[in-house]
Measured scan of single mutants.
Amino acid sequence: GGHPVTTQMVETVQNLAPNLHPEQIRYSLENTGSVEETVERYLRGDEFSFPP
Rank of each mutant, 00 (worst) to 15 (best):
I25G: 00
L20D: 02
S34E: 03
G2Q: 13
Y42P: 03
E36W: 13
L20C: 04
H3F: 14
G33L: 08
P51N: 05
M9P: 01
V35P: 05
P22A: 10
P52L: 09
E37H: 07
N19L: 12
N15D: 10
S28T: 04
F50W: 15
I25P: 01
G2A: 14
R41L: 11
L43K: 10
Q14L: 13
A17T: 08
E40F: 13
T12N: 10
A17G: 02
G1A: 14
V13D: 00
T7C: 12
Q8M: 12
E36C: 10
S28N: 05
Y27Q: 06
V10T: 05
D46L: 10
V5Q: 03
T12Q: 15
Q14H: 11
R26V: 08
E37V: 11
G45E: 03
V35E: 05
G1H: 13
S28W: 09
Q24C: 05
N19Q: 11
S49Y: 13
T6Q: 05
P51C: 03
E40I: 14
N15S: 15
R26D: 04
F48D: 02
E30L: 11
A17L: 13
E47K: 12
V13M: 04
G2V: 15
L20N: 01
F48V: 02
T38V: 07
E37I: 11
P4C: 14
Y42D: 03
H21P: 03
H3W: 14
T7M: 14
L29D: 01
H21V: 08
E36N: 10
G2S: 14
Y42Q: 02
Y42K: 00
R44F: 05
E36T: 12
S34C: 04
E36P: 07
N31K: 13
E40S: 11
M9N: 04
Y42I: 04
P18G: 06
V39F: 08
T7D: 15
F48C: 02
G33R: 06
G2M: 15
P4T: 14
V10Y: 06
V10K: 04
R44H: 09
L29A: 00
F50A: 03
D46A: 07
Q14G: 07
H3M: 10
H21E: 08
G45F: 01
P52Y: 08
E40A: 14
E11M: 13
V39L: 13
T7L: 15
N31P: 00
G45D: 04
P22G: 05
S34V: 02
R26W: 12
I25Y: 00
L16P: 01
P52I: 08
Y27D: 04
A17F: 15
L20Q: 02
V35Q: 02
N19C: 11
E40G: 10
S49M: 15
S28R: 00
E30M: 13
Q14E: 05
H21M: 09
T32K: 01
R26Q: 08
P51F: 07
L29E: 02
I25R: 00
E36A: 12
E23D: 15
V10M: 14
V39Y: 12
Q24H: 02
N19G: 13
N15Q: 15
V10E: 05
E47I: 14
L43T: 08
E23S: 12
L20K: 00
H3S: 10
L29P: 01
R44Q: 09
T7W: 15
V39T: 08
Y27T: 05
Q14K: 12
E11N: 12
E37K: 10
E11G: 07
E47T: 13
R41E: 05
V5L: 06
Y27N: 07
S49N: 11
D46F: 11
I25W: 00
M9A: 06
P22V: 14
T6Y: 07
T32C: 04
E23W: 09
G1R: 04
